[in-house]
Amino acid sequence: MLIDWFTVGAQALNFLVLVWLMKRFLYKPILNAIDAREKRIAAELADADAKKAEAKKERDEFQKKNEVFDQQRATLLNQAMADAKTEHHRLLEEARQAADALSTKRQEAIKNEAQNLNQAISSQVQQEVFAITRKALQDLATVSLEERMSEIFTRRLQEMNEQEKKDLGDALKTASAPAIVRSAFTLADEQRAAIQNALNETFSAEIQIQFETAPDIISGIELTTNGQKLGWSIADYIVSLQKSVDELLSAQNKPKDKSKDKVKDKPKAKTKSKNKPIETESETKP
């Protein structure tokens, strides 16, 4: 008989025992190990995914920051450029103004210099002219001229208006010292007599006079008494001319808008002074 039933039973039991043993020592540990490893791998993969996501997030954030930074940089750069442009304009304007001021100053300086030169030249010319005039007249002044002058002087005396005559007469009459008659040259006796006569006639009184020689009056005769003066001399003309020329020059040096009115007045003053070579001044002595 090929089948031994005891062996069958024993083998079946053996098989069942083997099943239990295999489950206990083989399948369970192996499956557990595989499961654990799979879990571990899954966890690692999940971790890697998480890390990847985090890295992506960080990268995105970084990119964003970078963009913001770029934008800021561009803005700052633009601003700086605009500032630089403004500053450039400002500096240019300043420089232009400075240059303008300098050139104005320079022009003014040149003008001033020219004016000064002009003035110097004019004053030189003036002095020269006066010097020449004075010299020429001095040279021309002779005794005969003095005679002629004494004639003019006497005629002036006679031609004086009433007020002047009165003033001068009062001065002559009240004077304690004799009146002084100055002339560039010593007058001849007849001339002296003529002047004395003319005075006496004019004021209808015996006028005490004293004759003096004064070369600085160039040519002419001058009567001085008790603060009143009556005279005629070329020096007076020259002095009055010089005065008017000086006035003219000083008016020129002043700003134009200010001097406009004065320029109008000048001819008047000039003519006035020229037309009045014989002055009657009142000097109030203390």
Partner: peptide, 20 residues
């Protein structure tokens, strides 16, 4: 056979690794 299989399985699964 049972003995050999059990001992072999035990020896191998004794130090199972869950590492890679």
């Amino acid at each position: 056979l049972m003995l050999a299989m059990t001992i072999g399985a035990y020896l191998i699964t004794r130090g199972l690794s869950t590492e890679l």
